[in-house]
Design a protein around this nucleic acid. Structure first.
Lengths: 180, 180
DNA sequence: GTCTATAAGGGGATAGAC
DNA sequence: GTCTATCCCCTTATAGAC
């Protein structure tokens, strides 16, 4: 059986995805678990701690990606590695990714998070140094597209592996990395 | 001078973009306008009416796009027309587009909106009939990428025309419409 | 158009029993 | 780990004066 703590996070995640963080009350989380608010407060001292506990593992998983990428020898190999890893991450989390990316409450917490700098690192690994406006737009569209496509309900019929393959192919084409 | 009604919508839009709809109270809107809540209620009977008044013009502007596109003769011309128009729309609204697209409250209202079917029409104009998984992923990534890139703060230094040009070029490449 | 005042309800959060 | 009960604040919304 999952721990009470895990059940809170699971219920919270579903509700955050559906209603956003601000649109989700502790009462709603408790109701979905079939317990009272007080039981939820026994696991987490504040609502903010619940949000942090939901996003933490994803943000922490970004650090090893940047570290591994930095060890590759060529810029092309680094780009390719980051892209592969980000596609994996987005598909692994699918519904969650959109919440993490767009919820205003989450955004504010992410901005203050220790892992925040890693995100800029990953973007820079993709753009290369001193990128042109064209390249910056390309990377922004891929980043946004990956997150959106992962969350897109009309694609929920596609199995993870199929989605991964297509997302990677489309991203490579968008970034003009087809032949590298 | 702008009407009180317009000032409400302008204040609401900024706050929705920053905090989301659920994270924005009527008190915050009133404070930003320098009036009291009751003054806001004099313009709109409910908070939901404010949200609707914010999104209505954008949704209504989708209908003529689909209509004009349908009059083009070839599928390629229709795709190209939709893409041009959507890029224009996204750039025209930039920050707003992300709120409109991802806020859970807005999404629920959009789903019930008369213009809702137009969105599926536009997607179908882009995918063509009976699209493959690959094509569906392509279109989902472009749609998400356009909205995200429009809202991306790191691209806010790019002037509208520059952004438009790059978004269109990148979208065409992603959709493999380079040579059509 | 804007105000004060107020109602009714829900939000986050705490105390203490079991 | 979960409960009941409660506190205080903020929320949406309304009534009526200016």
């Amino acid at each position: 059986m999952r721990t009470a703590r895990e059940r809170v996070l699971s219920a919270a995640l579903e509700l955050f995805a559906e209603h956003g963080v601000s649109g989700t009350s502790l009462q709603m989380i408790a109701d979905r678990m079939g317990v009272t608010k007080a039981a939820v407060y026994h696991q987490f001292p504040t609502k903010e701690e619940i949000v942090l506990a939901v996003i933490d593992p994803v943000l922490l998983s970004l650090t090893p990606i940047a570290a591994s990428a930095a060890r590759r020898r060529t810029p092309a190999a680094r780009r390719r590695y980051v892209l592969d890893a980000v596609v994996d991450l987005v598909v692994e989390h699918r519904r969650l990714s959109a919440v993490l990316s767009f919820d205003p409450v989450v955004s504010r917490l992410v901005r203050q998070h220790p892992s925040m700098t890693v995100i800029s690192e990953l973007v820079e690994l993709l753009t290369g140094p001193d990128p042109s406006p064209a390249t910056r737009v390309d990377v922004a569209m891929v980043a946004g597209g990956l997150v959106m496509a992962g969350a897109e309900s009309s694609l929920s019929d596609l199995p993870d592996e199929t989605l991964k393959t297509h997302l990677l192919k489309t991203s490579l084409r968008t970034l003009r990395l087809n032949r590298s």
